[in-house]
Simulated assay, not measured.
Amino acid sequence: MFFVRTAMEKDVEALRGLLIESFHATYDAIYGADKVHQMLDAWHSRKAIEARISRKDGEFLVADNGRQIGGLIFAAMSKDMAKTAFLHHLYVDPKVQRQGIGRDLFAEIETCFPDAEVMRLEVEPQNAAAIAFYQAHGFVEVDRTKNCGGPNSGIEAIVMEKPLT
């Protein structure tokens, strides 16, 4: 059984390992392994993970069973949009998917931003499983972007939102 808790600095290596495995499982068929490796280095370096864990306006949670971290979620208040929490990451280890870990992580992160009225995210248009998960949890498509994850990325994404009020 996995329990949700706050991520800590001692988790960085395990989190990076989970991100590497999850990213390759999810995106290799879409972008190719070389591009996925570049994305991992740019977005999920040890330094980037440490920065997210210590971010004051964010929450980084993990699903932990005492032997492994089975999932992670990170969200933070938007710097550009008032009263909006941005869901940056939700990944579950492919070996333990379909056990409710994503659901439990999401249920907890929703409660972490009392000043937010909306939760927003970007999702790869070909990631049908993620889109279905977010729709089942009340998200709807509100826009599209050609720069997922940051300016000039060239990565297309569906922008989805869910009211938190």
Rank of each mutant, 00 (worst) to 15 (best):
V4P: 06
T6Q: 13
E9M: 11
D11S: 11
E13T: 12
A14I: 03
L15M: 12
L19F: 04
I20V: 14
F23M: 12
H24N: 08
H24D: 06
H24E: 06
A25K: 05
A25N: 13
T26I: 09
T26L: 07
D28T: 06
I30Q: 07
D34W: 04
D41L: 12
H44R: 03
H44G: 02
A48C: 02
I49F: 09
I49P: 05
R52G: 12
K56D: 12
F60K: 10
L61V: 06
D64V: 09
G70S: 05
M77G: 06
M77I: 08
M81D: 01
A85M: 01
H89F: 08
H89Q: 13
L90I: 13
D93F: 01
I109T: 08
E110K: 14
E110G: 05
P114G: 09
D115N: 09
A116R: 02
R120P: 00
P125G: 08
Q126V: 00
A128V: 12
A129E: 12
Y134W: 08
H137W: 13
V142H: 01
R144C: 01
C148F: 02
C148A: 09
G149V: 01
G150M: 00
S153N: 02
I155R: 09
I155A: 03
I158V: 14
M160V: 07
P163F: 07
P163I: 03
P163N: 13
